[in-house]
Design a protein around this nucleic acid. Structure first.
Lengths: 203, 203, 203, 203
DNA sequence: GATGAATGAGTCTTCATTCAT
DNA sequence: GATGAATGAAGACTCATTCAT
């Protein structure tokens, strides 16, 4: 291998690594900023200011503010969904599935937003990938409940309720430092399985 | 009473009524616009365009866009809180209180946002008045659960879970036309009282 | 008429006059700037800087940079066309028509761009109104030439040639201070009617 | 001659050829892009994207976008001028000179811009070389007209008229696919020599 | 108090140019 | 000499807010 080729390869490698590093830095900054200010209030300059890059550089990586927001949301949803799916396949009972799925979600939240000075403005149904997560949950519930599901039961309301528990308990968890995914999971699962009085009793 | 004074009084009355009417018109328009577009995307011109007033007039009633948003949130919370408080005082059981409180909340949502073309971006903890609602709920729960509440129980998580159910089922309800506060209340109450499997069974 | 109404009317009148004045000021500034720099190189700030208005004010009068450019072009074309049309109807001979039309065009140029420090970047075929002017000329020529027009004659080339003369002689005229529409018209008409040698002879 | 020297020479030759090839490639791309988009709207990236070079490489060949535009204009003018000069020297009559010069100009246009999807924004007087072409034409006309030129004749207007014909008929020609330099030349020459009525008669 | 045009700071985005490799 | 990512100045445009009438 000629030294010219060698050098070119080394160069390409280095560049690729820099690009990846920059991309990650921008994504991380955007995650924080969106969490703190919300999509609209966050400006591209807010994002780029948290990196050591120049404003124009942002646009070498993302075509627009909207694109990075979508990328972030899609990315989160796409990392979450296979985990939920795996939990569904592994689960032998509603309880087991809830523990797996909610635990995974809370650990994900803690990792993703544990650093952020503030709470994310989660909109669970904005992008296709996010809608897919919602559908995944709804479908898993139907499947696992099976014939315990009365015909007149309103699956949309029930799934909304379960997701509501997970999201609000999750938010509450993020308010604490350090976040405690295990404890939060225990409460959320009990709430969903047995209701508030039972959960309050510590059952 | 001289007729001069009389006339002045009449005049003052008329003015006051106009002021109140304008203020209400602006608040109503803002409620709609914020619900449809969210706080940031909504512009003062969007709001004022839905009234028959001029843009400058907005600032005779509210100091800024932020102030009207806060006023709206506070106003909603202040209308909701006494209702919740009344329900607490009247309630003879957890079930009765939940039915009263959630029913009131859902009817409130339906009235307030039933018209809006889109969902409100509620942030239940932004203003003092909103925080007060959260505290109200938390306290009511503590009170009503009484000694059924194990010492190690995490009241914040539990309240968050209950509120999560109410908010997400409420949002789901708003997606339907027409909204059905009674049905939604029934599901939410069952979920909170007995958990998902029981609610699914239609218990 | 109550003094309230009176005052309101006076107010409305004053405002209307201010609006008209501002609009004219912006148009005049834009005319200059576009002439000096060309459409692309000219910035809205260049335009607004030549008025005593603030940058945002521009957008109270024109939706965009493109719109004002179109407005300017359309406006010029729409002032020119009826004049050309009138000349066509009045003309008893090709010579009379040319003198009328070219004279009108040159006087128009002198008025419109005589002040400008530099030459306009005229694009005679960009907007519909401009195309209409070109069509007007082409049609007038056909009509007036009548059966003196050989069947194989290429009207597009001929009209282009006549217009080329008018535009280049016109530009040349604008380079002189003060511009001399009469002299320029005389040369252009002779050139078109009899060709260069005859015009050179001063025929 | 040592083989080291030989190899160095070969190397130098190869480099020179590469440099020339790259330069030509960039110029050709720029010619197209400027013709299609105009100077301002064209970006250096547009130009470089039509070559197989990298964006930074552009600046090894041209100091700036402005420089390449000037180079292009100068280059065109410098290729055109000797042809016009030769025609002047060869010409035995005004007609012969016009046929030679305009024919050369139209063939030049057809070659240079025939491919372009759109028309060039020619500004015949921007660069020194372009001004030289104008002067060349003006001078040739004076010379050839000789004493047929009345003392009071305005040579600037006359030259402008002739050039106007050539440019507009030339543009018209470029609008047709394929361009027809011979036909266009015939019309332009007749127009200049005898005027519009004669040209229309097909004389 | 009502009006609505004027203001100018701030937003997203583009692009000529530089520079480390 | 070639590469292509980084830079940051500059542009078009928006909008909360002010203010003369």
């Amino acid at each position: 291998m000629s030294s010219v080729t060698e050098r070119a390869l080394a160069e390409a490698g280095r560049r690729l690594r820099t690009k990846t590093r920059n991309r990650e830095a921008i994504l991380a900054a955007a995650r924080q900023v969106f969490a703190e200010l919300g999509y609209e209030a966050a400006s591209v300059r807010d994002i780029i200011r948290r990196t050591d890059l120049a404003s124009g550089t942002f646009y070498n990586y993302f075509r627009s503010k909207e694109e990075i927001a979508r990328a972030l949301a899609t990315d989160a949803a796409e990392r979450l969904r296979p985990v939920l799916r795996a939990e569904r396949e592994r689960a032998v009972s509603l309880e087991a599935w809830l523990e797996g799925a909610i635990g995974a979600y809370f650990r994900f939240l803690a990792e993703e937003y544990g650093q952020a000075a503030s709470l994310p403005q989660l909109r669970l149904d904005a992008t296709p990938a996010q809608r897919a997560v919602f559908a995944e949950v709804r479908e898993s519930l139907s499947l696992i409940l099976g014939d315990r599901l009365a015909p007149q039961a309103d699956m949309d309301y029930l799934a909304a309720g379960a997701i509501g528990i997970a999201r609000h308990v999750g938010e509450q968890m993020l308010r604490r430092a350090p976040p405690d995914p295990e404890g939060a999971t225990r409460v959320a699962v009990r709430l969903i399985l047995h209701g508030l009085p039972a959960a309050a009793r510590g059952a």
